[in-house]
């Protein structure tokens, strides 16, 4: 928290009141963060340092504040880092993290390739259409995410729409196996996360000053070169925002790999689910979650820095 510029000044009553109000406004997001992020995080952290047990809940130690502070202290003495050691010892987890990061990186690239032309087209469209185009990008959210992913099962499966269509058109002779492969996972991710890529790109492109391109053309710059020299660099904030907005949630994605992926799909979200539900190993799954958070903090901090720098530049 940063102090106000008027720190230490002997403030008259009115000013102190305003300052109090400002602190109150600031306190709300911090309180929110404390209650809905930090407290749950410390609970997860605590479980990750516990040991699995055949009990309710399935780990020890369990803190019972009613039994006094001694109970908590004794519990803290029992904390163990075994679960983290386990994550390193078993190659599965490292592979699952790396595989998730890889799938997220490839998906982000694909989303950028698919999303950029869409956003570009939207930004170049006549003004009066633009609100409607933005609306159309958001429209899929009106249907439940789960149902939309389920729908892809119907499209991609062996006897599904896509294969039927390709067979009818004579493009293929045998139905393609797409469902339950990584290809299906990529299709699902690109489809589901497209709006998160398109909207920030559109926001950046829409703000661009067209006269720059006119000037480039006047000076003899061909359109393709003008795109790479002017449009793309100016849309960089949108590219970065879009990439982070999709990369971070895709890394921990569970629903899409579970429904569309197959035995070859290894993602940390699925591993975490299996540890928590199938193996009932809450401590290890909590450790998986903590490590995932630490891994994702890196891109999140990078993103924050980028945003802060941009705000500074634009603020001046």
């Amino acid at each position: 928290m940063s102090g106000g510029p008027d720190n230490g000044a002997a403030a008259p009553g009115g000013r102190a009141g305003r300052r109090g109000a400002r602190w109150l406004v600031l306190a709300i997001p911090y309180l929110w963060l404390l209650v809905f992020f930090l407290v749950p995080f410390f609970i997860v952290l605590k479980i990750s340092l516990s040991m699995t047990a055949l009990a309710m809940p399935p780990y020890v130690p369990v803190f019972d504040l009613a039994k006094g502070i001694d109970n908590v202290v004794a519990g803290i003495r029992q904390f163990t880092t075994d679960n983290y050691v386990w994550l390193i010892e078993d190659a599965l987890y490292v592979r699952a993290y790396l595989s998730s990061l890889w799938i997220a990186a490839v998906s982000t690239f694909l989303l950028l390739v698919v999303g950029y032309p869409i956003a570009y087209g939207m930004a170049r469209a006549p003004r009066r259409w633009q609100a409607m185009l933005v609306m159309m990008v958001i429209l899929p959210f009106w249907t439940s995410f789960l149902i939309r992913v389920y729908a892809w099962i119907g499209i991609l499966k062996k006897e599904g729409l896509l294969n039927q269509m390709l067979l009818a058109l004579g493009v293929i002779d045998d139905p393609l196996t797409i469902l339950n492969t990584n290809t299906a996972v990529y299709i699902g991710i690109v489809y589901s996360y497209l709006p998160f890529m398109v909207l920030p790109l559109y926001a950046a492109l829409e703000r661009m000053d067209d006269t720059l391109l006119e000037a480039a053309a006047d000076l003899g710059c061909p359109p393709v070169q003008a795109f790479w020299k002017i449009t793309f660099p100016l849309s960089m904030p949108g590219v970065i925002a879009g990439c982070f907005l999709v990369f971070i949630p895709v890394t921990g994605e569970f629903v899409i790999p579970d429904l569309l992926g197959g035995s070859e799909t290894l993602m940390i979200g699925k591993t975490l689910w299996a540890e928590f539900f199938a193996n009932r190993d809450w401590p290890v799954s909590s450790a998986v979650a903590v490590v995932l958070l630490v891994i994702l903090v890196v891109p999140i901090v990078l993103f924050q820095n980028q945003e802060a720098k941009r705000a500074e530049r634009e603020g001046r």
Binding site: L54, A55, M56, P57, P58, F276, F277, A278, R280
Partner: peptide
């Protein structure tokens, strides 16, 4: 898995549940 996790967390509010035997045995022990 979903049933067992809910029951292990406690306070599920259910009066009757219908787990399969291996899960049942483990939950008796817990």
């Amino acid at each position: 898995e979903v049933l067992e996790t809910k029951l292990l967390a406690g306070g599920s509010g259910y009066d009757v549940v219908v787990p399969s035997a291996t899960n049942f045995a483990r939950m008796i022990a817990a």
